[in-house]
Write a protein that binds this DNA or RNA. Structure first.
Lengths: 295, 295
DNA sequence: CCGCACTGATGCAAAAAATGCAGCGCTATT
DNA sequence: AATAGCGCTGCATTTTTTGCATCAGTGCGG
């Protein structure tokens, strides 16, 4: 889209913070780029960059414009994908920001299933915590977000929600492994493997512990959910995770037991997109598929 | 916006149905215009026009693109108005599609009040029936719609709703003018002035009459609400109208009496905009003002 | 306090792109 | 069969964009 090149130039300047650096990325001379920016500002009726001695920086008008640029680019991409869809080609690219728990089993299976039907569609999967996921939607870096217990929901339009109780994860040989349901106090008698404080599971556990005046002492605290699962398997320790991140088929040596909802309030796994956006066909169809899969 | 000229050209070709006619509107040669369209289709990756022996016509891909073009233009206008707002200028243009009932008193007063605060803001007011109003929103020809009893509400995002009972309109000297409330059967004993069948008030009246097995016989049927009011004033006839279109201050010689809701179901006056759109600041502020005014 | 390295801006000539003109082939109407 | 309308295209011309060289300003380190 030659006529939209100026938008890419503006973004390049914004990214690199200087015309000269952006000129290299854009394969153009700094002087040419400079004049295009100036010509655009002239037409636009307002400067969009602050000229600092050390480079360029978007001013408030520029921020507003940048959001428009991103929105318009995404909408153009949607139109393209719909046009491709018209000719029956089913192309497209779906960008997903998701919680770590979706990585081991759920998303690989879903993406593979979708691509079995539409092999022309490609995917980007980015691990994001609940705050970053929302930021990704706003900056159009992701089409869909799939996160556990998102923090604040402005700009987040919920497509689907499923309750996800917190599960205890342990070796099958663990003394508690035979129980159908666990109380939090049972778990606290053993070594704990906890996810970092930025995660929803941890937040729910802390809340529950505080309510009953107990304290969570982790022998291992980690950012990696994989670590939580595997460490629990090696030692006689207890980890925590939500069902969507677990697969008893893949790990017959492990037990996954729900914590009683008397102790720990169950969280919700939310599928959503940027409020007011029209999603590309591919993203929309994929969203429908995973909504069905989540039940 | 020179870089968006190609969009205007596409719209011009769409409007006029031929390159040669569109070329005149665009102040360009047919050959140049032709080549720009071709270059665009090349870049876009798909033809957007059907070449007919009698001219050009958008194909489905073109229809999709056209909607994107309109949406992007409106969003750019919104950005501009927000940028103007940044510098404290408060410029903008608000396009309203509204029912006829809003014309005599309500909108003039509201627009005047708004412009007293923000004289840089201008307005377009277009009279539209409830179907056309929605179509106007979809094609971005209007920012806001203010209609009585809209038919179907896909694409219509409701910002505000107020109940509006059907009122009988007559001269103060009319025998019924002293009553506080009227029954429909009372009215039917007199000559009636009715709005055309495309209007919500008429639809509600017909429904009510049918329910009790009565028939509405109009001595005057008209598309003009002004005609309804004035004819009722001249003869001892009864007209019908919703409160927002009436002003007892402006017409002390006339009586406006509600029809009992036992007979005629009250309709709703709805203020709305295109689903998913971000309105320009001016339109949004004006919408808030009239929502408050409507109560 | 002075280079030095970095920034954006600008005059001018060269390169590239867009345009206008004239004419072609086609089709539906008269 | 003549005509009037359509989209398309080769070629010369005009307009726009670009690259090069250079200027002016600013902050940093010696």
């Amino acid at each position: 889209m030659r006529h939209l090149l100026i938008y890419e130039m503006i973004e390049a300047v914004h990214r690199s913070g200087s015309i000269r650096k952006a000129a290299e990325d854009t394969n153009i001379t700094a002087s040419a780029l400079n004049r295009r920016i100036q010509a655009f500002e002239e037409e636009f009726g307002s400067e969009i960059f602050e000229r600092l001695p050390r480079g360029m920086r978007l001013n408030p008008a520029g921020e507003l414009l940048l959001h428009h640029i991103r929105s318009q680019r995404q909408d153009m991409a949607r139109v393209s994908s719909q046009v491709a869809d018209l000719s029956g080609v089913r192309r497209g690219h779906v960008k997903i920001a998701c919680s770590q728990a979706l990585l081991p089993y759920f998303l690989p299976e879903q993406i593979s299933r979708y691509r079995a039907n539409f092999p022309g569609v490609t995917f980007s999967v980015n691990v994001r915590d609940r705050i970053q996921a929302e930021r990704d939607l706003v900056s159009f870096e992701s089409d869909l977000a799939l996160v556990f217990e998102p923090a604040h929901l402005v700009d987040f339009e919920i497509l689907h929600a499923v309750p996800q109780p917190v599960m205890a994860v342990m070796s099958r040989s663990h003394p508690l492994a035979i129980r159908p349901v666990l109380r939090l106090r049972d778990c606290l008698e053993y070594d704990l493997v906890l996810p970092g404080p930025q995660y929803g599971v941890r937040a729910l556990l802390e809340l529950a512990a505080a309510k009953t005046g107990q304290r969570l002492r982790a022998v291992v605290e980690t950012e990696s959910f994989e670590m939580v699962r595997h460490y629990a398997a090696f030692e006689q320790a207890i980890g925590f995770q939500i069902p969507v991140g677990l697969s008893s088929l893949a790990r017959p040596d492990m037990a996954f037991i729900p914590i009683s909802d008397k102790d720990v309030a169950g969280g919700e796994l939310l599928l959503g997109h940027l409020r007011g956006r029209t999603l590309p066909v591919a993203a929309l169809k994929f969203a429908r598929q995973i909504a069905t899969a989540l039940g």
